[in-house]
Amino acid sequence: MIASGVSAFMFAGILTTMVTLQRTCAGTIEFSRGTTDQQRALDYISRDLHRALTVTVSSTSQTLTVTVPDTYTAYDAQGNPTGTIVAPSISGAKVNYGDASKPLTICYYLSGNKLLRQQTIGATNAVSTMVIADSVELIQTSFADLTSVVTYSVTFAPKMTLADYGNSQARTATTLTGCTSVRNARRD
């Protein structure tokens, strides 16, 4: 009887340890995935902002739209450049690649739990949309247009404990902020 009681206590302890360990593992992995997705999102956004000609932040600060020069001779069906960089031309004091009136339009926005990057090639009207971050639930972005500098932040809701899920304070602690100086003279 005593042995059974001790055994039951030990098993309960082991079970609790295992469950806790599993939840810790899952939480850690989720956090790590969230951080990695944040990094990737920030890197994508900064890359496109660097070369932007125009920048538009939606009134809700949730959508960022930039236009970039159409610098390649060809793209594949998924919108990836496959050709070579076209030679630039000078018009007035502006440098143009391809048809200046038909740049690439790139839009970052959230759809459900996914951060999407939609690219429209002005010359062909080909639209391609990629999922930049999909492994993190409740990812959020925010953009602020400061004329020559655009700031943006990405947060996600960690799930280290059940209480964290959707917890705004826990989300705040995950905020990563990027700040990119638009290299080109803006045309908007």
């Binding site: 790590s32 995935r33 890197d43 994508y44 496959t82 949309t129 990629m130 999922v131």
Partner: peptide, 20 residues
Amino acid sequence: GYEPVILAADGSKNHKSFLR
């Protein structure tokens, strides 16, 4: 490292779109 294949919105893989 952890560099999953980028997916298009329709779920198809976009191998050429690796960021880094």
